[in-house]
Write a protein that binds this DNA or RNA. Structure first.
Lengths: 143, 143
DNA sequence: GGACTGATTTAGAATTATTCTAAATCTTGA
DNA sequence: TCAAGATTTAGAATAATTCTAAATCAGTCC
């Protein structure tokens, strides 16, 4: 393992710890897999890819790990269509251009100051899906 | 049926026709149900509500009808969390404030000219989910 | 009106996505 | 070292959605 990789794992470990979670080989492998190919895989796809380097990993662990990564802010959970949830390692503020025909996903950074949002060349926009997540007034009070 | 209702059904029927779809009692009931209580039900919830006035309707028909309504632009399909898809009868440009704790959904109209988006009183924002749907350059060419 | 065509509906099976369960294993701290 | 709690595992269970094949329905052509 290179020095850079060691550093990454240390950061990762600390990130987990601050959320009360442990650094485990399984979590490391899953996170590696997601960072390695920076696309928008489903949990099933992450499972398949992780099996290549860790054949004994289970389904439940992948789900559990993905939830852990989402909880400590290392991965974003993305709902683009009916069916499987996807996961995204890009934690910068960005939006997803999603092709309803082929399923391709394009990340586009949000630029607060520009009036027109840039978009992938040739992309034909049909509609926007904007969801703001958080806590409603009542739930915010309770916490 | 009142004159207003007749008019609505006529509009609905025409809307279906222009998409090559037929106006059927089942579709009418499902659409009624969605318009009546303007929240964000899942397909299962729509199924249950529709059964009250049309007990013999089937699961598949509800799914089929919801897809039809989405296709002809009368209903919006919304993915807010893992699990069931929701449907929204509000076709104005708006975004959804979603409470990750209790699941409440608030519609907020998009106002292009204002700098700060209004939000439900007391809502504590965690993160934005912005998805732009459409066709990528390659797929747009093929169509 | 009757036959034909294709759309729609239905029950139920099948598939897909996700969560749950209980036992085994591992980690950490006393 | 031991106890407590976190994690992992295989597989079962559940939830969400789609598929299938047969039956029904609506509109069109004669």
């Amino acid at each position: 393992m290179s020095a850079v990789e060691k550093k990454l794992n240390q950061d990762f470990s600390e990130r987990l710890n601050t959320s009360g979670l442990r650094f485990t080989p399984q979590r490391q492998h899953v996170y590696d897999v997601i960072l390695h190919k920076r696309d928008h895989p489903t949990a099933e796809e992450v499972f398949i890819r992780t099996k290549k380097t860790m054949p004994e990993i289970s389904h439940a662990t992948v789900y559990n790990t993905l939830d852990a990564l989402v909880k400590c802010g290392l991965v974003r959970q993305v709902q683009l269509e009916r069916g499987a949830t996807r996961f995204c390692p890009n934690m910068e503020e960005h939006c997803h251009y999603f092709c309803d025909s082929c399923g391709e996903v394009f990340d586009v950074p949000l630029q607060k100051d520009s009036t027109a949002m840039p978009r992938p060349k040739g992309f034909k926009v049909d509609h926007y899906d904007i969801a703001v997540h958080g806590l409603c007034a009542d739930c915010a009070k309770k916490k």
